[in-house]
């Protein structure tokens, strides 16, 4: 596939923040020094109103990344054309520097469930992802980034580890990677008893650095059941120290790439989130700034 790649405004290799309606006014008034913002496009797939009003003003001042949750790239029945068209329209309107989606599915028999669901890691599932990503990249006429999942269970009939599957899908589909460092940590913790268990560093070391176009950092919570503990990727708290450490090792390995602080629940005031944004930025900036690494550059 050959794709024309005209990125209007690339995402700089700086720390960015998930854009939340609670912060719209504060961002416009204070113009905080944040490298870029990221949105879930689904929240803007409406005709009009406040969301578009604020997004267009914030977009005028900051680079923007679009991180989808609803395309369901792992669905056997294929991606929903209506959804894909809506995404295309939003991309045309707001010209994001990066567009990403998940290595999960959430649509079956025409029903969309509001979560990111696990897939078996086998050849058939790889083919489904590759076909769906291919269709998406062709329609959008751009390369997209695929984010590694946070898993709570291991699906039967899996022949690969999560990272082997992730790498294979991204390579074959001609996509790039959005590496969620918290998800690596969460999945590694949650799947310790599975045949496909891995350590965070094993995962990280397998990732081909040149494929990574963005990093996500978020908080999770520990939930205790009778026989086991589960780390829930709820984006409702600060990034934990173990994930900050893993992030530092990630940067050592792959160099500086745009890094998002994600907070979707228990959303605090902007200054509190800026502490995490600044911390990520401090880890990013000592390395030479290389915005080229983050532009989602054209592929042959």
């Amino acid at each position: 596939m050959s794709v024309k790649q005209d990125v209007i405004e690339p995402i700089p290799a700086r720390a960015g923040l998930g854009l939340k309606p609670q912060h719209f006014e504060a961002i416009l008034e204070q113009q905080p020094d944040i490298g870029w913002f990221e949105i879930h496009p689904e929240n803007y797939m409406v005709d009009g109103g406040a969301a578009h009003h604020y997004l267009s003003r914030i977009r005028a001042n900051y680079p923007l990344s679009m991180h989808g949750v609803g395309l369901s790239l792992g669905s056997v029945e294929g991606v929903c054309d209506t959804h894909l068209q809506r995404l295309k329209s939003l991309i045309e309107r707001y010209e994001p520097g990066l567009v990403s989606e998940h290595l999960t599915w959430n649509r079956s028999e025409g029903i969309s469930l509001n979560d990111l669901l696990p897939t078996p890691f086998n050849e058939r599932a790889i083919q489904v992802f590759v076909d769906n990503i291919d269709k998406t990249q062709n329609l959008l006429q751009r390369q997209i980034l695929i984010e590694n999942p946070s898993s709570y269970l291991s699906v039967a009939e899996s022949d690969y580890t999560e990272y082997e599957f992730f790498i294979e899908v991204v390579k074959r589909a001609g996509a790039r990677m959005l590496l969620d460092v918290n998800n690596i940590y969460v999945s590694a913790s949650n799947l310790t008893e599975s045949e496909q268990a891995f350590t965070p560093d094993e995962y990280l070391n397998a990732i081909p650095a040149e494929y990574v176009g963005e990093i996500h950092l978020a908080g999770h919570t520990l939930k205790t059941f009778d026989e086991f503990d589960i780390r829930i990727d709820d984006h409702g708290s600060e990034v934990c120290e173990a994930v900050w450490d893993l992030y530092a090792r990630t940067l050592e390995k792959i160099g500086p790439v745009p890094t998002l602080i994600e907070r979707d629940n228990n959303i605090p005031a902007l200054p509190e989130l800026m502490i995490e944004v600044d911390r990520a930025e401090c880890l990013l900036v000592p390395a030479p700034l290389d915005t080229q690494a983050s532009t989602g550059r054209a592929y042959a």
């Binding site: 689904e42 929240n43 797939m45 409406v46 949750v69 609803g70 395309l71 369901s72 929903c80 209506t82 959804h83 809506r86 959430n106 649509r107 025409g110 029903i111 969309s112 469930l113 509001n114």
Partner: peptide, 10 residues
Amino acid sequence: HPPQTAVVAH
């Protein structure tokens, strides 16, 4: 009536 769309506003 589960959602037939991934857009929760709809």
